[in-house]
């Protein structure tokens, strides 16, 4: 092979490689996801965060929540929220008590948003997602009332819920950046 042919082949190969690379980057990366709008996800997306994002419209008070709680929740959590087993206690506890503290919504949970988020996605355990948004607000209010955090006529909605300061709000150390 002459020098000339070699040089030509080299240029040809480099050109091919460049084309090949561009082609790989642009054409072989699959993009099979279908566009969807947040509006189309409004029933699907149940994430309700501490910043207020993701909460549905609606509201409720503890006075309204008592009936829902008594019929849908009390079988496991008891009428008073004192629970029927270790994992179902919703009220009481003191993080600074002697011995191992009783960790409940009132004594331990740092954010009120978590209460709404969890009830809406996972409760009642035998029929999750069977409560309406109004009922979730009402039960959220009632559990907060049982813990002495709101009074029975406080209206709980997106704005008032995320404004609530839970007793243990400063009780957590974020380790998420520790690798």
């Amino acid at each position: 092979m002459s020098m000339y042919k070699r040089a030509l082949l080299f240029i040809f190969s480099v050109t091919l490689a460049s084309i090949g690379f561009v082609s790989f980057a642009q054409d072989t990366v699959l993009k099979l996801g279908s566009p969807i709008s947040e509006e189309q996800l409004s029933e699907f997306d149940l994430i309700a965060g501490p910043d207020g994002a993701g909460f549905p419209s609606g509201s409720g008070s503890a006075a309204q929540g008592k009936q829902v709680f008594d019929t849908r929740c009390a079988a496991c959590h008891a009428l008073t929220g004192e629970g029927t087993s270790g994992n179902t206690v919703l009220v009481g506890g003191d993080m600074h008590s002697e011995g191992s503290p009783l960790r409940t919504v009132g004594s331990y949970w740092p954010h009120a948003s978590t209460l709404f988020d969890f009830i809406r996605r996972a409760m009642p355990a035998d029929a999750p997602k069977s409560l309406t948004s109004e009922e979730v607000y009402q039960v959220t209010a009632y559990v907060l009332y049982l813990n002495g955090i709101v009074d029975q006529n406080t209206v709980i909605n997106r704005e008032t819920l995320i404004a609530i300061e839970m007793p243990n709000k400063d009780g957590f150390i974020d380790k998420s950046q520790v690798r």
């Binding site: 503290p101 331990y108 957590f172």
Partner: peptide
């Protein structure tokens, strides 16, 4: 921000002797 789900606040967190609790202990 994190979503502060039940299973990263109420559960899977570790309370220390000073009664603060470690959250997001990942590795």
């Amino acid at each position: 921000e994190s979503s502060q789900f039940r299973d990263e606040t109420s559960k899977y967190t570790d309370t220390l002797p000073d009664r603060s609790s470690l959250q997001f202990t990942f590795p």
